[in-house]
Amino acid sequence: MEVKFGITDIAREVTIETLATPDEIADQIRTAVENSSLVDLTDDKGRRILVPASKIGYVDLGAPAARAVGFGTV
């Protein structure tokens, strides 16, 4: 699933692919905002992304997408 973060004072958004569900990500972001802490996510390649909750402008939770297999078009 693709997650896009809009960070205040930064022109580009931060985009990651993660195996977490939208509900898991929303709960983690909600908790981080309430506690003024960091959002700690792991992408699908095992990298950790830490975003200060106080700097989040918006979060776009994309739909879970299945990976395409083969060379044909869908």
Rank of each mutant, 00 (worst) to 15 (best):
M1S: 09
V3P: 01
V3D: 04
V3M: 04
K4D: 12
K4A: 14
K4G: 07
F5T: 11
G6P: 04
I7C: 11
T8A: 14
T8F: 01
T8K: 11
T8D: 10
D9I: 01
D9L: 03
I10T: 15
A11W: 00
A11T: 03
A11L: 03
R12L: 12
E13L: 05
E13I: 01
V14H: 06
V14P: 01
T15I: 11
T15K: 08
T15Y: 10
I16W: 05
E17I: 05
E17P: 00
L19G: 13
L19C: 05
A20G: 04
A20K: 10
A20C: 08
A20V: 01
A20Q: 14
T21G: 11
T21M: 10
T21E: 09
T21Y: 09
P22H: 06
P22T: 10
P22K: 05
D23V: 00
D23F: 01
D23E: 13
I25K: 00
I25T: 06
I25C: 04
A26V: 03
A26E: 14
D27M: 04
D27A: 15
Q28F: 04
Q28N: 12
I29Y: 05
I29V: 14
R30D: 13
R30F: 08
R30E: 15
R30S: 15
T31Q: 13
T31N: 05
A32D: 05
E34Q: 15
N35W: 01
N35K: 03
N35I: 01
S36Y: 09
S36T: 08
S37M: 05
S37A: 15
L38N: 07
L38Y: 08
L38R: 03
V39E: 11
V39Y: 00
V39S: 01
V39W: 02
D40P: 00
D40M: 03
L41S: 09
L41W: 08
T42M: 13
T42F: 02
T42L: 10
T42H: 04
D43N: 15
D43R: 03
D43L: 03
D44I: 00
D44Y: 00
K45Y: 10
K45N: 13
K45H: 12
R47H: 13
R47C: 11
R47S: 13
R47E: 15
R47G: 07
R47T: 08
R48D: 14
I49R: 03
L50N: 06
L50V: 07
V51P: 02
V51D: 11
P52R: 07
P52L: 07
P52Q: 15
S54T: 13
S54W: 05
K55H: 10
I56A: 14
G57Q: 10
Y58G: 06
Y58R: 04
Y58S: 08
V59R: 00
V59T: 09
V59L: 06
V59N: 04
D60C: 09
L61M: 06
L61S: 09
G62E: 12
G62Y: 07
G62H: 02
G62F: 03
A63L: 09
P64N: 11
A65C: 00
A66C: 00
A66F: 01
A68T: 06
A68E: 12
V69Y: 14
V69L: 14
V69P: 02
G70V: 03
G70Q: 04
G70L: 02
F71V: 09
G72T: 07
T73H: 10
T73K: 09
T73L: 14
T73A: 14
T73N: 11
V74T: 07
V74A: 15
V74R: 13
